[in-house]
Amino acid sequence: MKDSSYKRHLAKTITWRIVGTIDTIVLSCIISGNPFTGLKIGFSEVITKMVLYYLHERTWFKINLSKDGKVLESKKRHIAKTLTWRFIGTLDTIILAWIISGDPLTGLKIGFAEVITKMLLYYLHERTWYKINYGLDERRK
């Protein structure tokens, strides 16, 4: 693949991190009851999540889950990507929230609350990017 796919994946990484960080901050503030804890958790994730998301995106770009040489139908692929990313993202959130709050239960509460909101937001993000041609030399079929 050409270098343009890297630009696309970087742009997807940045846009997803913006959406994800806002969601984490809101949930962390509500669950911890402390806006500063929420901000610390949300902003601490920016670096870890961008690196993890970029690696996840590059891995999925290289995975060919096809039958007869055709890429798996986009909605099924996006659901699979959603589930794998959510596992990685939730684990990262739980660990960071636990460290920052000092309470493992707070980490678990925030992590599990995100499972629902983030899966829905991620799926919508994937569907939106599927319709955008930025960084594609040609749309994969």
Score class of each variant (00 low, 15 high):
28 S>W: 13
67 K>Y: 09
4 S>Q: 14
99 I>K: 07
68 D>L: 07
41 I>G: 03
115 V>P: 00
130 Y>V: 04
138 E>I: 08
65 L>E: 10
98 W>M: 06
90 T>D: 06
28 S>K: 12
76 K>D: 07
97 A>N: 10
37 T>F: 08
66 S>I: 00
85 W>P: 00
121 L>R: 01
51 V>K: 11
14 I>K: 02
68 D>A: 07
2 K>C: 04
33 G>K: 09
84 T>G: 13
95 I>M: 14
39 L>W: 14
87 F>C: 12
77 R>C: 02
51 V>P: 03
81 K>D: 13
33 G>E: 08
141 K>E: 12
97 A>S: 07
56 H>K: 08
124 L>E: 00
18 I>H: 04
54 Y>E: 10
85 W>Q: 11
51 V>W: 04
82 T>N: 15
111 G>C: 08
15 T>A: 05
5 S>P: 00
25 I>L: 08
112 F>I: 10
83 L>Q: 04
48 T>H: 02
56 H>M: 10
62 K>A: 14
2 K>E: 13
69 G>L: 12
120 L>F: 05
19 V>W: 05
58 R>M: 14
89 G>I: 07
41 I>A: 02
25 I>H: 05
105 L>Q: 11
80 A>E: 01
116 I>W: 06
75 K>W: 02
89 G>S: 14
30 I>P: 01
42 G>D: 11
34 N>W: 10
16 W>K: 04
117 T>F: 15
49 K>H: 10
2 K>N: 15
66 S>Y: 02
122 Y>S: 15
26 V>W: 13
138 E>V: 10
107 G>Q: 08
44 S>F: 09
15 T>W: 02
140 R>H: 04
31 I>W: 01
29 C>V: 06
99 I>A: 06
14 I>L: 10
35 P>S: 15
107 G>K: 05
75 K>H: 05
82 T>E: 13
57 E>T: 08
91 L>Y: 04
136 L>R: 08
30 I>F: 11
110 I>M: 12
2 K>F: 06
96 L>R: 09
65 L>N: 14
90 T>F: 02
66 S>H: 02
88 I>A: 15
77 R>E: 14
125 H>S: 12
88 I>N: 07
58 R>P: 00
127 R>F: 02
86 R>M: 03
11 A>D: 02
41 I>R: 04
96 L>N: 07
75 K>T: 03
76 K>C: 00
4 S>F: 01
84 T>I: 05
117 T>C: 12
12 K>A: 06
77 R>P: 00
17 R>L: 09
101 S>F: 03
30 I>M: 09
85 W>V: 01
103 D>I: 13
54 Y>V: 00
137 D>L: 11
138 E>Y: 03
16 W>Q: 09
12 K>D: 09
122 Y>K: 09
95 I>K: 12
141 K>R: 12
46 V>R: 05
29 C>N: 11
21 T>A: 01
8 R>E: 04
30 I>D: 04
107 G>W: 09
108 L>I: 08
9 H>V: 01
17 R>S: 13
125 H>R: 06
91 L>N: 11
72 L>Q: 09
44 S>L: 10
38 G>Y: 07
130 Y>R: 12
79 I>T: 07
122 Y>H: 14
45 E>Q: 15
72 L>V: 06
